[in-house]
């Protein structure tokens, strides 16, 4: 479990490194910001999901609002 979590984190960070490096080199700052935001969000969700936090499920939301 801990090993898997470590692996997940390693993978996420590896993705971050691989993706940000060219963006920094090309000085594409808006893209970098967008990437970092999305990456942070998705990584947070992924880790939370992995650890077992109950995340809100949008499907339930749809089920509720629709007749």
């Amino acid at each position: 479990m801990i090993i898997l979590l470590a692996l997940l984190l390693a993978a996420l960070f590896l993705i971050a490194i691989v993706e940000t490096a060219p963006l920094v080199r090309q000085k594409h700052w808006p893209e970098l910001a967008a990437f970092l935001f999305l990456w942070g969000l998705s990584s947070f969700l992924a880790v939370a999901q992995f650890v077992g936090v109950n995340l809100p499920n949008s499907m339930r939301f749809f089920e509720k609002i629709l007749p």
Binding site: L4, L7, A10, A11, L14, I15, V18
Partner: peptide
């Protein structure tokens, strides 16, 4: 650039797959 990226990611996937067996 793409080649390096793909190499890195293949590495990740292999790691992910190998550990659990």
């Amino acid at each position: 650039m793409t080649a390096r990226r793909i190499c890195a990611v293949i590495l990740i996937i292999f790691l992910l797959l190998l550990i659990p067996g």
